[in-house]
Design a protein around this nucleic acid. Structure first.
Lengths: 187, 187
DNA sequence: ACCTGAACACCGTTCAAGT
DNA sequence: ACCTGAACACCGTTCAAGT
């Protein structure tokens, strides 16, 4: 006797993302997700292996969203300007969904790492910029330097590590400008 | 009738640090700490407000250790070389105590933020380098760029985000070299 | 004054029993 | 085939009772 499906993986993931952002990682409990989608907690295990798996799915969905934002940044003739727009897009994304962003920086508590291809595809626009700035043979190194800086800066900003005074906005722009110049200078 | 003290805050913090490094954040439970110091879990609350407080103390102890390592880096006439040694010291520290390092990057699960003065003092050598490289008026911006890059790079490395091939070591040195040049170029 | 067992409110997860 | 209640092994934390 089949029972009608009372929820879906999509509803579960949506509930998990909303809970993560509104209540933090500790608020993302199987109980709370179940309540939100209208079933009992054990039912979730029909659609999801366990909590770690659910968190991994949320992380991957976030990577895809971030990738879409980055692919939407227009490509102009000025690579330096593109880098600025790109960096601001990442930062804006992180500010609207800080908890999800922490998840994909490798800093948040993700037990199961997200799919590598997803990350590669999401960051494809960055590799274009890095290659244009530093030349094809240093593209990977340059891309890593840029992601490390952006990820580190935004993580620290979200953690409130920049309370020493000074303008955080200006420090971010200072970083972009000097990084952009650093690569171009050594082509 | 006083009972003899069967443990101490020092023993508790030591146990917590060992557990964090060997078992990860999830393994750092009040139960496990109590077992290790030879009391029952409720007794810990005589020395520590709660688990979040214990984690904060561990984070602060880690900042002090990192600060000691950084202050031990010799100051030479070549600021560029100092920066290289400094960055390598941070990375070496992170590799020996990855879980504790994550705690102080603002990426790990620290509910209560560590004392700001501790961080300022620990990073004092960096500010010297930043001021020498970028000039006193841009010292803060430069220091933030450097810490963001180093913290982000090492965090991603520890999370295994650099599996795209290529030499991680080389990417790190590439980052130092270009950052060092970037600031000096614009003095 | 410190330590303890017992208890409480939570977790994630499993599983037999329902429909 | 999906959903559920009950149960299990864990958490962190409180507190009255011991010494």
């Amino acid at each position: 006797m089949p029972t009608p499906e009372r929820t879906s993986i999509e509803a579960i993931v949506l509930a998990a993302r909303e809970l993560l952002e509104s209540q933090g990682d500790a608020g993302l409990t199987m109980q709370a997700v179940a309540d939100r989608v209208g079933v009992r907690a054990p039912s979730l295990y029909k659609r999801v292996r366990n909590r770690d798996d659910l968190v991994r799915i949320v992380a991957e969905a976030t990577i895809q969203d971030l990738g879409a934002q980055l692919h939407a940044v227009p490509v102009t003739a000025d690579v330096g300007q593109d880098l600025i727009e790109f960096a601001h897009a990442v930062r804006a994304f992180a500010h609207t969904r800080p908890n999800a962003f922490r998840l994909i920086i490798g800093t948040g508590p993700v037990a199961v790492p997200p799919d590598l291809d997803l990350i590669t595809h999401a960051l494809a626009p960055l590799f274009r910029i890095a290659a244009d700035l530093a030349g094809p043979e240093h593209a990977l190194d340059a891309a890593r330097t840029l992601t490390a800086w952006a990820g580190g800066f935004i993580t620290m900003e979200l953690a409130g590590a920049f309370n020493l005074g000074g303008d955080v906005e200006r420090a971010f722009d200072y970083g972009i400008a000097h990084l952009g110049r650093a690569f171009t200078a050594s082509t």
